[in-house]
Design a protein around this nucleic acid. Sequence first.
DNA 1: CCGATTTTTTGCCCTAGATCAAAAAATCAG
DNA 2: CTGATTTTTTGATCTAGGGCAAAAAATCGG
Lengths: 187, 187
Amino acid sequence: MNQLRTEIIRLSDGTDEDVSKIYENLTLLSLPKGRFLLKQKHFCNQYFLIEKGTVRLYYLKGDKDYTVWMATEGQVFTEMDSYLNQTPALVSIETVEDSLVYSIEKSKSDKLAATLPAYNTLLRRTVEEGFASMSRNLISFQSDDAVERYRRVENEKNWVAKYPLKYISSFIGITQSTLSRVRGRRS
Amino acid sequence: MNQLRTEIIRLSDGTDEDVSKIYENLTLLSLPKGRFLLKQKHFCNQYFLIEKGTVRLYYLKGDKDYTVWMATEGQVFTEMDSYLNQTPALVSIETVEDSLVYSIEKSKSDKLAATLPAYNTLLRRTVEEGFASMSRNLISFQSDDAVERYRRVENEKNWVAKYPLKYISSFIGITQSTLSRVRGRRS
DNA sequence: CCGATTTTTTGCCCTAGATCAAAAAATCAG
DNA sequence: CTGATTTTTTGATCTAGGGCAAAAAATCGG
């Protein structure tokens, strides 16, 4: 079973035909590790759908590197602020392993959303889930301390086993040293 | 001109008839200041659309009060995590002045989204914009200090003039004392 | 298996922002 | 206006987590 296809079916609630129509509009990119789907300050004009592999959304500020999100197989996403408001992207999107990623241009996506309700629904549900997830993150930043934020990532996501700790620490907004101490149960 | 109606038209891209169909599905609530649309730990089963007035989304943790969002005329929103995943709401939603708020039940909303593309689009665009806005907030929490976070609220939103400083400080995740010092230009 | 590179931990000191408490200013009801 | 309540500021500590740099551990190419 294919993760992405399953996800598209689940979120779009569409028929086989709807799903085929969606796929017809996608372009497949085969990307080696370390390739950029988007660079900070550039304009984001696509939605992305991950068939295989993993990408990291992050930005540089001063000499620091902040991870905003890690997206992997089956996930549908974009840099929404840039995509929607046509502003310079706040984040870069880079593959962290060899990946297969579908993309769809904004113009094509808009047209498809207007003509194929299942695709419109796919986007809506996708963004709704992303919104819910981001709300939880934001609340965590507002009121949780480093230990609690780490526990969340440890429990909710399976990121800790999968990614280098420097991505984790930058995601939860602490230094790698502090994360190391948190993991070592002291403070 | 009516703010909410204008917003619905802008986001749904629908005909007059579409807009009428949407309104037919809404229930109008007239609420005095201090009334709850949702209480923390309860389940959220509606989308809300503000015709007039202002509400505050916030949660209590320990003895502290955290403002998550302020929504006002023309805004469409829900407690997405609870609404979508049928989990206990993380936040309460309370009117901070006398308000007129439309609501639509989840079941009705799902049905309408499946049958009226304009409504589906209204929701999609609404959540997309919310997602983009929240991304910026999250990034700000990750890498901005108190001064920068305050500046953002001062510039991007017109909240500072409109709401008590205790809501502002709890929104940007600092104490009221610190906010006061930030505003006074020292640290 | 081995040196080289990358990742993770540790130690020491320092700072942004918290806490607690009280004063000052603004707002409000009568 | 006036006393009461709410909002905002100020002052005096205290602390979670940062900065920096070095050590230790893990990973990797050949």
